[in-house]
Design a protein around this nucleic acid. Structure first.
Lengths: 219, 219
DNA sequence: CAATGTTTCCAACAAATGATGGAGAAAAGA
DNA sequence: TCTTTTCTCCATCATTTGTTGGAAACATTG
């Protein structure tokens, strides 16, 4: 038995699948309260009541979007994980930054939605949780910041969050930051990757990187 | 002749000043569309029409909030700049991270509002621009990422944005990230500072930091 | 084909929300 | 004190927004 969400994924041309895709984009751009059901219906070329027929009320649709995005992100993280297996830490970071940046630039609503859930409250808190905690652990393990079968330390979790957030920020803030930096889109993408590597590779794979974080008092 | 905003700042107990303060907080928590004028009025203990009397319509009030926050942030950046003058780059980073983190934790609506303006569209785009571009340049100069009277390079701008965003994210995402990391608030604050230093000090002041990212002028 | 189930749209409603006019209270100025 | 100005609230309005009932169109099954 398939869940409604899985059904929508199966038939990508169906009205239901199309409305979900549009909802992802618009919720990602305007946030929960900035999005109206009419905006989604109109962009989908569908009557508003059709939306309610398929997805229930606005909060239900939003939950479906969050679940859908979480699943996409999980798959993408797994792909990257496979791609970097067996490499050195510096190489893994290099590849992961490239791949995640490229992926998110094609699906900006993913990072948009994640960031908005981090930073903006909704008046009636939605029920669905992001699967960020499990993603963070799995990335920390892939980076060998934790031993297999050992719990991932708070330090390692914070470091993973810092990396993920830095990528999300540059992707979702593209429009704004591009104008601050004063470059065109291609250059911005290149600069994003270069900057991320410039910052993170020394910290995790530089010469001093095995001096543990907590013992490091000076600099 | 004083602007209305300056007047509100002068008399911190006035209704007008109080409503602005409440508006800062609520716009920061819920974003523009997630905030209703009634929420602000109620939290301020004031009738809704009093709000309109003082500030004009919702967009006008929002603009006043943005301007107000921009000014606070500018002052804080200047304070930090003075505090770190004459030190080494590693020390400057160390101090700046501590100071900015502490400041933003006391005024979380500042980073909330900035981040929401980066990442969330509003249906009717507000007119006021954040003064981020000028802040970025001035920080880059303070970090000696650019020579005096020379334009600040795109590379340097990106690096400054990365630092600012990392701090903003950990402060504004505190509630969410704290639960991901599984620590109490005090520990989270400590971890935030440690993680930021762990990441940024090697990149900018570590041994390999003079291998230029492109053609970064060093200190 | 007939009958049944599914999908879509039109029209409408109720609540929430942004906004205002006007009366009175409070403060400032004469 | 009287007058004028500033401020606050109550009542109300118009629009937007979330949501639904029901009829028609379409598809599926017997």
């Amino acid at each position: 038995m398939k869940s409604p969400l899985e059904k929508a994924r199966d038939a990508p041309d169906s009205t239901k699948a199309r409305t979900l895709k549009v909802a992802r984009r618009i919720f990602g751009e305007y946030g929960f309260h900035g999005t109206t059901t009419r905006m989604i219906a109109q962009e989908s070329g569908v009557d508003i009541s059709t939306l309610y027929y398929h997805w229930g009320d606005k909060a239900d649709l939003y939950e479906a979007v969050v679940t859908d995005i979480d699943e996409d992100l999980r798959l993408q993280l797994r792909r990257v994980e496979e791609r970097v297996a067996g490499r050195t830490l510096a190489e893994r970071l290099d590849i992961a930054i490239d791949e995640m940046t490229d992926y998110l630039l094609v699906h900006p609503e993913v990072s948009n939605l994640v960031l908005l859930r981090y930073f903006a409250k909704t008046r009636a808190e939605p029920i669905t949780d992001l699967r960020v905690p499990s993603f963070v652990s799995s990335i920390a393990r892939a980076m060998k910041l934790a031993e297999k079968d050992e719990p991932v330390s708070p330090e390692a979790r914070m470091q993973v969050l810092a990396i993920m957030n830095a990528i999300y920020n540059f992707v979702s803030g593209q429009e704004f930051f591009q104008s601050v930096v004063g470059v065109d889109r291609d250059r911005y993408v290149t600069l994003t990757k270069e900057t991320l590597k410039f910052i993170f590779i020394p910290a995790f794979a530089g010469e001093k990187s095995f001096v543990s974080m907590t013992n490091r008092k000076e600099a």
